[in-house]
């Protein structure tokens, strides 16, 4: 007979593990990746590969030689960070800038806090914001979908949000700009310029549903986030349709869907209770609209999420679950 094993209850465990969660996110991102591959060609594959490899390698090196602990790269969290970082940049970004972005994302935003589970901010977003501030030109020249699959040199152009922001600043009205903005059906399937992961709304939604079914995310953050943006921009649109564009545009343009479904729901940096998640989602939504409409940047999703990441510990303290028997 074998030696019996002893432990406290429970003696069974659910199927879910950190590994399955992280690889689940990777699978959920696959449709969006395929769409970006279709539109941006081989350069999308190249920049994504650079991001993933550098993230994983940096994490491995830091764990092995700086922290001197067992490397845990197989849990897939570095892969997710790399993938999300790649999804947040234009495919025309030089590869060495991508490596710097990965270094900031993994090295500063994740490992310096102590690694998986201990970071305050979403690593991919920190990497993206660092790149955006350091290399603003490269980070804002968005390639329009390539005509030639194997072309590494794409034609660049501004994003829909950029066009809108500049146009409004120049004193034009929304209806005047409508002619140069892409139409909604193109935005929905992804026939627009933008970063890798934000072009196709439908692919992002498919991935989102997959994660919902796998119970990797709950509906609370995405719904409250997008819902807030819709309500907030909707009210402004109703007040002055000439100056403010309608909510549908806000949802489809820029990284709102990517942010709301994949970045804001990052387990580590989002609140833990349902109530807290809704507050967090609303906060993200309000910040996004504020930055988009009145801020200097045309796109506000990453800043909004990072700001709310900083508030997460407070939300966790303030919105505790309701104790049984206290009704």
């Amino acid at each position: 007979m074998n030696k019996l094993t002893l432990s406290g209850s429970p003696h069974v465990h659910s199927e879910m593990s950190v590994k399955s969660v992280m690889w689940g996110v990777v699978i959920a991102l696959a449709p969006a990746f395929l769409v970006s591959l279709w539109y941006f060609g081989i350069s999308a594959l190249f920049i994504t590969a650079v991001a993933i490899i550098s993230c994983v390698l940096i994490e491995f090196l830091i764990q092995k030689y700086l922290l001197k602990e067992e490397p845990s790269i197989s849990d897939g969290s570095a892969v997710v960070t790399g993938l999300l970082l790649a999804f947040n940049v234009p495919s025309s970004l030089p590869w060495w800038e991508m490596v710097i972005g990965s270094l900031v994302a993994i090295g500063i935003a994740k490992m310096s806090f102590g690694g998986l589970g201990k970071n305050i901010f979403n690593p991919a977003l920190v990497g993206r914001v660092f790149l955006l501030i350091s290399f603003p030109v490269d980070m804002t020249s968005w390639p329009v979908p390539a005509q030639n699959f194997f072309s590494l040199d794409a034609i660049t152009g501004p994003t829909a949000l950029g066009v809108l922001s500049e146009g409004i600043d120049a004193g034009k009205t929304v209806s005047e700009l409508a002619t140069i903005l892409p139409d909604y059906s193109n935005m929905f399937i992804g026939q627009i310029g933008g970063s890798l992961g934000e072009v196709s709304a439908i692919a992002l939604l498919i991935g989102g549903f997959y994660m919902l079914i796998r119970k990797i995310i709950t509906w609370h953050i995405p719904v409250s986030y997008i819902g807030t943006v819709v309500i907030f921009t909707g009210i402004m649109w109703l007040i002055d349709p000439a100056r403010y564009i309608d909510p549908v545009f806000h949802i489809l343009a820029g990284g709102l869907l990517l942010g709301a479904i994949y970045m804001a729901t990052d387990m580590v940096s989002s609140p833990m209770t349902y109530k807290g998640m809704i507050i967090y989602g609303v906060g993200c939504g309000v910040m996004t609209v504020l930055i988009r409409v009145w801020g200097a940047y045309p796109e506000g999703v990453s800043f909004a999420i990072l700001i709310m990441n900083a508030v997460t510990p407070l939300i966790n303290k303030g919105f505790k679950p309701v104790l049984f028997g206290n009704k």
């Binding site: 950190v18 969660v21 845990s72 690694g115 998986l116 709950t218 209770t273």
Partner: peptide
């Protein structure tokens, strides 16, 4: 593994802890 603060334990706790 380290706690990833997913909050699943809170969600499933029948006593609201």
């Amino acid at each position: 593994n380290p706690c990833i603060r997913c909050g699943k334990c809170i969600t499933v706790c029948p006593m609201g802890l």
